[in-house]
Design a protein around this nucleic acid. Structure first.
Length: 522
RNA sequence: UGGGAGGUCGUCCAACGGUAGGACCGCAGACUCUGGAUCUGCUUAUCGGGGUUCGAAUCCCUGCCUCCCAGCCA
């Protein structure tokens, strides 16, 4: 399932709940060639993960095959269905085109008894695939092609993953769908916009068959997202051609991808509610809306931690060598109930490279030569010296700290412009951090003849020498946290106790990056 | 020269024929031990043309544009 399916799923369950109704889960497994248990399992896993519950109402169209067969026989008896001997190619020719009406099959007016006999023999396996087919007798001149004597049952000499080899004829979705709905007592059957043309057929079956319930089909808009693709074919291309690492690659708009990336089901659901139901045209949502939903959720629930992505070694000259201490840090300022933790501090630290500039631009508040900043929950430090290697790269900073500012507050009331995250070099844990960006550079990759031309070559950036606060050593795959000032992260299944691997779910809003970009542009 | 469905801020979603509103994004400011979060303010829209009406996003006519349909797929 992808995020578009999640929206459809949410719509069904939310609308049912709002109206004190129930929502069933049914697999319309009418085509034995296309159904697999794995497919079914992964759908149920995704639906459950999203938090929806179909209780004991799990259904399969394949459980209705016998009834569907009987309904088909009924249509034949009523002179409303017939067995056609035309080949698939001939049927296509006879169907006409969008602008020209079709013409009747020469087999259209077979006697009822002959149809009954032929249909029974279809079921008995006497004919080959494509040799004969059961069609409804509606109107070959209809402007709606779905009404030009649609197929009801076709021969497929293939075993069904649930029904086994019991059948060699299988119902078409258009036939099975309204009847399955009626059998389940469905009142409202929601589907996507491309089925609007099928509604007259849906209604035709219900009007011409003795059903005890009269469901109504209502169509809703499909959802897609900006900067990604949604079609199964295109997603498959991404996987098959190695543009991503698999269906659950954190850059994929699949639920398994979002899950691995660290999205919560709550965020996906709240996004789906944000989207609403009203549209009668397919829409492309701004991915920023999804990002808002996950930030909103994680801000309230994710514990904070400190992690330095790209380390710069900092030595606190006036801090005693060999000494260390533990400082109190708040786990989540949004939720005091989440408590505090201890963070070790010592003479050698790692700071984020981005947080230091030898020659700071105008609005840069962070560390620079001679400047004082606060280390989160620790001390104020001042940069005294910049150490470079032979080629001029900064390799180390020499700083001093103010012992009076322990915990992050100064008795004289002074307050630095900036507070930085840090990690004690002697205590920190090494980690690999995978930074994800949008998969495509273009808002609507579908607009291109070849959608892969707008793939973003920088959609994955693996940072190998990151350092994390020691308490993260016990983090398990799936655990989420915020690395302060950077973003929300989630432990990847690739992670091992010896080598932590984190995925960036989403960045924090970054005002400084915006300022920097703006200054860079003109 | 077929049938069906649509066109409201940049993007989504609203508005018994009665002040076009909300969310996201963007911009400006306040606050802040995360340049985070939060709060405040601001910018921007009814596809075009005719009608009906005291009054039209809404009703009528007309034009334009977009999407879907010719599987024995769903």
């Amino acid at each position: 399932m992808h995020i578009g399916h999640a929206k459809a799923m949410s719509l069904n369950f939310f609308i049912a709940a709002e109206n004190n109704g129930l929502c069933n889960l049914r697999f319309d497994d009418t085509n034995p060639a296309k159904e697999t248990v794995e497919f079914e399992q992964s759908i149920m896993e995704d639906v459950r993960w999203l938090g929806f519950d179909w209780q004991d109402r799990l259904f399969y169209a394949s459980d209705y095959f016998e009834k569907l067969y009987e309904y088909a026989v009924q249509l034949i008896r009523d002179g409303k269905a017939y067995v056609d001997d035309l080949s698939p190619d001939q049927i296509r020719e006879y169907r006409g085109t969008l602008t020209e009406p079709g013409k009747n099959s020469p087999f259209r007016n077979r006697p009822v008894e002959e149809n009954l006999d032929l249909f029974a023999r279809m079921r008995a396996g006497e004919f080959e695939e494509g040799q004969r087919i059961l069609r409804a007798k509606i109107d070959m001149s209809s402007g709606n092609i779905n009404m030009r004597d649609p197929a009801l049952f076709r021969i497929k000499k293939e075993a069904h993953y649930r029904a086994g080899d019991k059948w060699c004829i299988y119902p078409m979705y258009d036939f099975a769908h309204p009847i399955s709905d009626a059998l389940e007592g469905i009142t409202h059957s929601l589907c996507s916009l491309e089925y609007e043309d099928h509604r007259p057929l849906y209604d035709w079956f219900l009007e011409n068959l003795p059903v005890s319930c009269r469901p109504v089909q209502i169509e809703f808009a499909r959802l897609s997202l900006s900067y990604t693709v949604m079609s199964k074919r295109k997603l498959l291309t991404l996987v098959r051609d190695g543009h991503v690492r698999g269906w659950d690659d954190p850059r994929m708009p699949t639920l398994s991808g979002y899950r691995r990336r660290g999205y919560t089901p709550e965020a996906i659901r709240s996004f789906c509610q944000m989207v609403g139901v009203g549209a009668k045209r397919n829409v492309v949502l701004d991915v920023a809306m999804l990002e808002h939903a996950i930030r909103d959720d994680l801000n309230k629930h994710a514990p904070r931690a400190m992690g330095v992505l790209r380390p710069l070694r900092v030595v606190i000259d006036n801090y005693p060598e060999g000494q260390s201490e533990e400082l109190d840090a708040v786990n989540n300022p949004e939720d005091p109930a989440m408590g505090t933790r201890k963070v070790p501090f010592s003479r050698v630290l790692y700071l984020e490279r981005d947080d230091f500039r030898e020659d700071p631009p105008k609005q840069f508040f962070r560390l620079a030569p001679g400047r004082e900043v606060r280390l989160r929950y620790a001390y104020f430090i001042k940069c005294k010296d910049v150490i470079k290697d032979d080629s001029g790269n900064i390799v180390e900073l020499r700083c001093t700290y103010d012992p009076a500012t322990r915990g992050g507050d100064s008795p004289d009331g002074r307050s630095p412009k900036s507070t930085l995250h840090w990690v004690s070099a002697a205590h920190a844990l090494p980690a690999e951090i995978r930074l994800y960006d949008r998969l495509f550079n273009k808002e609507r990759p579908d607009d291109d003849e070849d959608f892969t031309t707008s793939l973003n070559p920088q959609s994955l950036d693996v940072v190998n020498d990151s350092w994390l606060e020691p308490h993260l050593g016990s983090a398990k795959p799936g655990d989420r946290c915020q690395f302060e000032r950077i973003g929300y992260f989630c432990v990847d299944p690739d992670s091992t106790p010896g080598k932590l691997v984190f995925n960036r779910t989403v960045t924090l809003r970054d005002t400084w990056a915006k300022i920097e970009n703006k200054n860079a542009r003109p």
